[in-house]
Simulated assay, not measured.
Amino acid sequence: MLHRRHLITSIALSASALALPAVSLAQPAATTRIVVPFAAGGPIDVTARILAEAVKGTLGTVIIDNRPGAGGNIGVSAAAKAAPDGLTLGIATTASHGINPWLFSKLPYDPAKDFSAVTQMLRVPNVLVMNADAAQRLNINSLTDLIAYAKANPGKLNYGSGGNGSAGHLAGEMFKNQARIFALHIPYNGGNPAQLGLLSGQVDFNFDNLATAAPNIRSGKLKPLAVTTAQRVAAMPEVPPVADTLPGFEIDTWWGLVVPAGTPADTVRKLNAAFTEALRSPEVKTRFAALMAEPAPSTPEQFEAFMARERSKYERMVKISGAKVD
């Protein structure tokens, strides 16, 4: 009996010993991070956090790494220089991968060569808005009215933007070019000061982000004349596109996910599958809709081609505007 107890104990101890290496060698699940090139609290940061939460069931822990500064160039450069192992993603934006290559004489990254596309995340419409009091005073009720007034009163209109080379500035220059009108550009130090300038009557119209402009549109302080997307938007279906008056006019705000160049193709596909599934989920659609944002899941190839087209479009627009940042 005693011998049998010793045998059982020996077997148990041997089994425990065999199990120990497996426990001691087990590795914790890898953490994925998304480098957001702007400060916490903004729309890009908020949407990135929504997605990080939505993919945790597939990818595990996903953290947000905010790297603001230099108009987004610091964070984008950090993402480009990360290891190409699929554990670091960056956010590509209209500015970083569309405008900045032509606006800056030198960038710390190459938007075409330093990244592989994963998926576009979303698109946010922009809207041409006027100060409501100014629109009433000048009897401007539509985009056609604005163009007609500008042609009949050359040099009397101005428009504001968040600064030279900003999306609002370039949209304004594209509008002037296609409508064959003149309006003086008034650059502000950021989107919020530009909107305050419009609300106070310092400028006559702006091209603003719909999410930012919506509260003042609903309160009656701003009058929307047209959205800059090719089609009407669900949030304000009564507002026509600029393209209805100026065919081919299309400009909106977008951002998406990229990884460092050299990331294995199968890893990119895995990330694409996880994030596009999340972007199609009802919960993400609902949360994005509250920000006036439309999910835009895509294949890596589609997003790569889209960014190339955007670079080509903004190259022309930056040249028209004459904007430069050195």
Rank of each mutant, 00 (worst) to 15 (best):
N216E: 13
A273S: 12
T276Y: 00
A323E: 07
K285R: 13
S219W: 11
T253W: 08
V242Q: 01
P224A: 08
T276D: 07
R311C: 02
A296W: 02
R311N: 01
A230P: 01
L246D: 10
F249R: 06
V284L: 08
Q231R: 10
E310D: 07
P224N: 10
W254H: 13
A308E: 06
E301K: 12
A226N: 09
A243R: 11
P241C: 13
T263D: 01
A274D: 08
A226C: 09
M236I: 15
V268C: 03
S281W: 01
A273V: 03
K313V: 04
Y314R: 07
P237S: 15
A323S: 15
P264Y: 01
N272K: 06
F306R: 07
A230N: 08
K221I: 11
V284N: 11
L291R: 08
P295E: 03
P247E: 09
N216S: 11
W255Q: 08
I320W: 01
D244T: 13
G256K: 14
A226W: 03
V325I: 15
S321Y: 05
R311S: 01
R269Q: 15
F306V: 04
K313Y: 10
T276C: 07
R269E: 12
E277V: 04
V239C: 02
A235P: 04
P240E: 14
F249W: 03
G248C: 08
V318E: 00
L246S: 09
K223Y: 09
P241G: 07
L279C: 13
G322L: 12
D266H: 03
V227Y: 01
A278C: 11
T253Y: 10
K313C: 00
I251W: 02
T276R: 10
A235D: 12
T276N: 06
Y314G: 01
P247K: 07
M317C: 05
A261D: 09
A235W: 09
V284I: 14
E277Q: 15
R309A: 09
P260H: 02
R316L: 09
A289D: 08
A289V: 03
Y314M: 07
